[in-house]
């Protein structure tokens, strides 16, 4: 039992509470009626997906800066979790859009940005699979992650201008405390679960990467490569 297992368990308990409250206790949304309940699952997923992918950006900066495999493993763990959460987010979004807007897909800035974010990070994970040399893989993954992540604000504003006629659906004025509680609980639940999963994945990936690199925990300087080969 490590601490992240406890965090994972707490997360699942909180998620059950938050979702239960959202499903059965929260008042029905005036405009969206039952469909409004989707937001208690959807909005926390959106926050956590963005948090996870933001973490992978910082991990990529760390990996490129230090050359340490700890950061490299963190990039993969967070990117992988973030990609799955973003895919879930898009599915939830289209399931929310169908009863409210009448169609599954809309070129809403947030929806479109999430879709592009998903494709960008799938690209990062694919290119990571292709490179077998651990040191080169660290660099390639980190660069692809940084280049992909800095695109996010530009994509968002670009799509926003492109679809400038579209209505915004966030409605803080209709959110009262009975709606905030389940939302907040579910958000912390998703955060705990995602962080725990990232940490579990991080340990596994780090073990694999360090086994692949013959010299564990060496800084990834090109000069050290020859040293690592001499040990064999």
């Amino acid at each position: 039992m490590r601490w992240e297992h406890g965090l994972l368990a707490i997360g699942f308990v909180l998620l059950a509470i938050g979702h239960g409250m959202g499903l059965f206790m929260a008042p029905e949304e005036a405009m969206m009626r039952e469909a409004g309940r989707i937001l208690y699952a959807h909005v926390p997923t959106a926050w956590v997906a963005l948090v996870t992918l933001t973490l992978s950006f910082f991990a990529a900066v760390g990996a490129l800066w230090t050359g340490r495999y700890g950061w490299d493993a963190a990039v993969e763990a967070t990117a992988e979790t973030g990609v799955v959460l973003t895919a879930l987010l898009l599915f939830q979004g289209s399931m929310w859009a169908k009863p409210t807007w009448g169609y599954y897909w809309d070129w809403d800035p947030r929806l479109t940005t999430s879709a592009i974010l998903l494709v960008l990070f799938v690209g990062v994970l694919v290119v990571r699979r292709v490179v077998s040399d651990p040191e080169r893989r660290l660099t390639v993954t980190a660069i692809a992650t940084i280049v992909a992540f800095v695109d996010v604000p530009v994509v968002y504003f670009g799509v926003k201008w492109w679809r400038s006629l579209h209505q915004e659906w966030s409605s803080p004025q209709t959110v009262d405390s009975t709606m905030v509680m389940p939302l907040r609980i579910a958000a912390f639940a998703m955060l705990f679960i995602s962080l725990a999963i990232c940490v579990i994945r991080w340990r596994t990936i780090l073990a694999t990467v360090q086994a692949e690199a013959t010299a564990p925990d060496l800084p990834a300087l090109p000069a050290e490569l020859s040293l690592a080969e001499k040990e064999v």
């Binding site: 979702h19 499903l23 405009m31 969206m32 009626r33 039952e34 469909a35 309940r37 989707i38 699952a41 959807h42 997923t45 879930l88 599915f91 939830q92 399931m95 929310w96 169908k98 009863p99 409210t100």
Partner: peptide, 16 residues
């Protein structure tokens, strides 16, 4: 207006 959305709600929670 948005009747019969329970199906979508259940699908979303189940998928999550």
């Amino acid at each position: 207006m948005v009747d019969g959305a329970w199906g979508y709600v259940i699908v979303v929670y189940a998928a999550t």
